[in-house]
Design a protein around this nucleic acid. Structure first.
Length: 424
RNA sequence: GCGGUCGUGGCGAAGUGGUUAACGCACCGGAUUGUGGCUCCGGCAGGCGUGGGUUCAAAUCCCACCGGUCGCCCCA
């Protein structure tokens, strides 16, 4: 490429060798969603910028430095969606789904998201997420159902080196008490904390806890734990979540420092990580949590919600890291080999008719010799090669060769469709 | 946004200042007038990410930019 017209940084083309895998994974996920009775929602790729500012939070990295924001010709500030939950919540409110007697709404989505970041493997500027959102239910069973769904997807695809990390951020009251305790605890140490944390302590003290730079700071060790600040209701809810996880045999680690980056989370927060060797520094495969209050923030009634986002790129990387080959069928039913002076019109019509009858077939377009046509058929994993030469044509037959066994026999052209249908 | 590292035919990979830039894989053709493998022979294909600079001479040295990759921040 010597012209400066490659794909923009942080974006990639998915070629057939990739899309085969993507399709397989997407279909697998959809079929699991059916079992759990989740239905698909699709929302616009961009939203009013305010949607993300209000829901994700003005102080978060996503909003502060990662959004693709632009003004349209009408002067509106729009943003390519950097995450899925805000859009789905907006759609729920706008379409008044809270008035639907069927509650909760259990939704899933496949979305492309956009975040302006320095790209690495597993971190793209245009990325793809599968996610679910359950709106209208505050029930530990739903929290665990959602986690179970994510784990089931990973396990069904073959992943084994998984780790579920879970925490509770409590309700508004618990969170507020904890926030104050954190400020009180860290303020005396503020000068020895890293620059980021000094700012965090002011804006979002919970995030001081998962700072890696200050992880060894002495004040970190005896910092108050959120779990000690949960009020009775929040604590009970969290305990029920953990019990249900145990009930269905999902192992977990409680990590009181898992706070998640986005403002809208409360109560249950979780991440699923890959522990596969060679997965690199990025280990988070999926993350999510409960966001009671978000719907109200966006102008709807007080409605609880929970969901997660799962990175498809990272899922594929995790599969690679665990050396899992997806069972993708790449075979071709038939390949037509022609030779000699067979008219192009005859070849074209034959292929057309077979396809009209639902038979998968491809042919040579490069003017290759017979031997090369066979090699091509082999490369394409053709099950049958149909050989049509002048001799066959004059007898109105065609030679059907089974590539695996090498057996071949002549079939009348008039009986070809029927014969192939029986064989395939 | 910060730091490290890398960038040679479709892919992999030599070359680290000096004649027409190795080699392997793949692809095409022939040996084998109509049949997949192997072997042998032949062929196609690159001026070295882009743009400047140093030099008699640069893929090789310097600078900038672009892109990949790894790590930081943060997350999917």
């Amino acid at each position: 490429m010597n012209m400066n017209i490659g794909a923009p940084r942080g974006t990639v083309d998915l070629l057939p060798e990739d899309t085969r895998k993507w399709q397989y994974v997407e279909e697998k996920i959809k079929s699991i969603c059916e079992a759990y009775h989740y239905e698909e929602i699709r929302t616009p790729m961009f939203e009013h910028t305010e949607i993300f500012q209000r829901s994700v939070g003005d102080t978060t990295d996503i909003v502060q430095k990662e959004m693709y924001t632009f003004n349209d010709r009408g002067g509106r500030s729009l943003t390519l969606r950097p995450e899925g939950t805000a859009s789905v919540a907006r759609a729920y409110v706008q379409n008044k789904l809270y008035g639907d007697p069927n509650q909760p709404h259990k939704l899933f989505y496949f979305m492309e998201l956009f975040r302006y970041e320095r790209p690495q493997q597993g971190r793209m500027r245009q990325l793809h997420q599968f996610g679910v959102e359950v709106l209208g239910a505050r029930n530990p069973a739903i929290d665990v159902e959602v986690i179970d769904l994510a784990m089931t997807i990973y396990r069904t695809l073959g992943l084994r080196s998984l780790r579920l990390v879970i925490n509770s951020l409590g309700d508004k009251e618990s969170r507020k008490a904890y926030r104050e305790a954190l400020i009180k605890h860290f303020t005396p140490h503020i000068d020895s904390l890293c620059k980021d944390c000094q700012l965090r302590l002011e804006q979002n003290p919970l995030r001081v806890l998962d700072c890696k730079k200050d992880a060894d700071h002495p004040a970190m060790k005896d910092a108050p734990s959120i779990l000690d600040f949960l009020n009775d209701q929040s604590r009970k809810y969290f305990e029920e979540v953990l019990e249900l996880l145990e009930e269905i045999g999902i192992d977990y680690d409680v990590d009181p420092n898992l706070v998640r980056g986005l403002d809208y989370y409360n109560h249950t927060a979780f991440e699923i990580m890959s522990e596969a060797e060679g997965f690199g520094a990025i280990t988070t495969l999926a993350g999510g949590g409960r966001y009671d209050g978000l719907i109200e923030e966006l102008g709807g009634p007080d409605t609880p919600g929970i969901g997660f986002g799962m990175g498809i790129e990272r899922l594929l990387l995790a599969l690679e890291a665990e050396n899992i080959d997806l069972p993708i069928d790449q075979s071709l039913d038939c390949y037509l080999v022609t030779m000699g002076d067979v008219p192009q019109k005859v070849i074209f019509k034959l292929v057309h008719e077979l396809r009209q009858n639902g038979i998968q077939i491809d042919r040579d377009y490069q003017g290759r010799k017979v031997k090369a046509q066979f090699k091509a058929a082999n490369r394409l994993h053709a099950k049958y090669v149909l050989v049509l030469g002048e001799e066959e044509l004059s007898k109105q037959v065609i030679n059907v060769k089974h590539m695996e066994t090498g057996n071949q026999k002549e079939v009348k052209l008039s009986e070809l469709v029927q014969t192939l249908k029986e064989k395939l």
